[in-house]
Amino acid sequence: MNWLSLNWPQVIELTRDHLLLSAPALLLSVLIAVPIGRLAQQRPRIGGALLGAASLLYAIPALPLLIIIPALFGVPLRSPATMVIALTVYGVALLVRTAADAFGSVDPRVREAAVAVGHSPRSVFWRVDLPLAVPVLLAGVRVVAVSTVSLVTIGALIGVPSLGTLLTDGFQRGIPAEVATGIIATMALALLFDALLVAAGRALTPWATIRHERPLPQEETT
């Protein structure tokens, strides 16, 4: 605690750095994984290959990936870009399967009814598939958000500042309080992301929450 009271400006600055690495990566992951997931769900044959590739990508350990990325993309090793690319790779690898599942969870009868009343393919996607995929998708995004925030710390090993810097610095200088601060701040940030996503989910899917709160009897026979 003593350490924190002396160093909180640094912690705040590192928290900001941490945020600026994880938020764009999360956003990019969603933007890239959703169309791929949709493709995978619509074309199971391509989808199988895509999901297999994603699962292999995901198997590559993070630190090695951080070192391979500069060689592949020509970005400098100690740069935020390297970090964001690596985090996005993992985010996408994790999310494509969930995205495919999310689109697969949309009742085909609802989709077909939408086509039947005259939704164009584009409006089926924007007005039907995407909103209905949100609950499952969001569950996946929450997992990715938490693991992204935690993963950012690895960047400290190649010299990209984040809350992970507290871990390496604290270790090298033998200050357990600094390491502990790094761990707790990282977990708190992950929790914050998660809480924000849960709130966003509530706002985006009013129909889902209402149904859970006030179930009404239904006479379904088939």
Partner: peptide
Amino acid sequence: VALRRSIGYVLQHGGLLPH
């Protein structure tokens, strides 16, 4: 698409958009 918009269609399961 235009054809379908000009014809009313009712299905067994309503086919209402749940969201």
